[in-house]
């Protein structure tokens, strides 16, 4: 058995997918406790979405990435184009396989945990998370496991993913292109430039999945910049748009299977940034980066142990 096929499986039961979602939350809570802070809330809101994408929705081949974490392979340039691309962890590219773009790249820890839970990277690689000089950075880029591109500047990845979907459509490839967005990012004008263009070019191979946790750095989205009615907005820009309960695996899968002939599909997953770690509710909506103080630590450790973690 090679590293890349280690424990690779293609069929998961709902219970198994939920178990992966739980393990994502547990591991990131553990990181947050150990390091005093993390993008914990994003794990709480997106755990089911990302677990469902990797186990039930996307058609990905086995990882073609290195089984262990690797040192940072250098920035791309004319003399460095053959570095290990993070997308290899989603499988070697093939015409019939799907592709996955993560725009909300501060969800990197969630992606790494999902890769580990689905046999795509060594779970021990998580020890290198946010460690200087390694490829498991806190905010992902081209070389980070699970990442196609460098997404830190919001609004761009959805266009890159749509351009990729357009190119694949021209080439006659059958695989789909998925792109994960946060809902705060929908305030970027480029997001809407992209949706109108994806509609214009009838990109029925393009699926945008949104973790709509209703929060952004400075507070609740509804108090910062009104976005609703999102479904109407997406539909009027040329997409098919549906909503689902982003913590219900069956609902997420069903929503992602919605027919969208001649247009892109946008799936708005309504979520909460404190699901699984209800303690976070008292900090809501200021949950962009959760800090856990020494005084708070015991109560979070208690939740961690309830989730099956060992302190």
């Amino acid at each position: 058995m090679t590293d890349s096929t280690r424990s690779f499986k293609t069929r998961y039961t709902k219970a198994e997918t939920q178990k992966i979602a739980n393990s994502i939350r547990r591991q990131i809570l553990g990181i947050a406790i150990r390091s005093g802070g993390c993008y914990l809330s994003q794990a709480c809101s997106s755990a089911e979405i990302i677990a469902a994408l990797y186990t039930k929705i996307m058609n990905l081949g086995p990882s073609a990435g290195n089984w262990d974490a690797i040192p940072f392979p250098g920035v791309p340039g004319p003399d460095n184009m053959d570095y290990q691309h993070g997308s290899l962890y989603n499988g070697a590219p093939a015409p019939d396989k799907d592709r996955f773009f993560v725009s909300c790249c501060h969800y990197a820890s969630v992606i790494y945990c999902a890769l580990a839970a689905t046999g795509r990277i060594n779970p021990a690689a998580l020890d290198k998370f946010n460690v200087d000089g390694w490829n498991m950075e806190m905010i992902g880029a081209e070389h980070s496991p699970g990442f196609e591109n460098t997404a830190g500047s919001l609004g761009q990845t959805v266009s890159i993913a749509a351009g990729t979907a357009h190119a694949r459509k021209i080439k006659g490839e059958t695989g789909l292109v998925y792109c994960l967005l946060g809902d705060g990012e929908l305030q970027e004008g480029q997001t809407w430039e992209c949706i109108q263009t994806a509609g214009h070019y009838k990109l029925d191979n393009f699926v945008v999945v949104i973790d709509a946790n209703g929060q952004q750095v400075e507070g609740a989205i509804k108090d910062q910049m009104t976005e609703e009615p999102l479904v109407d907005r997406f539909e009027s820009f040329g997409a098919k748009c549906v909503t689902c309960n982003g913590h219900d695996i069956d609902d997420i899968v069903k929503a992602c299977r919605t027919g969208h002939k001649n247009r892109p599909l946008v799936v708005i997953c309504r979520t909460h940034g404190y699901t699984g770690v209800p303690l976070l509710k008292k900090k809501w909506p200021l949950l962009h980066f959760v800090r856990i103080s020494a005084e708070e630590r015991p109560e979070y450790e208690k939740v961690y142990e309830e989730l099956g973690g060992k302190c």
């Binding site: 761009q156 266009s159 890159i160 749509a162 351009g163 990729t164 190119a167 480029q190 430039e193």
Partner: peptide, 20 residues
């Protein structure tokens, strides 16, 4: 690409990644 240069630029990056 319409009068939407930001999207055009990132879209081009996606096309380029696919060999265009």
């Amino acid at each position: 690409m319409g009068i939407a240069e930001q999207n055009m630029c990132s879209w081009a990056a996606g096309m380029c990644r696919e060999g265009f």
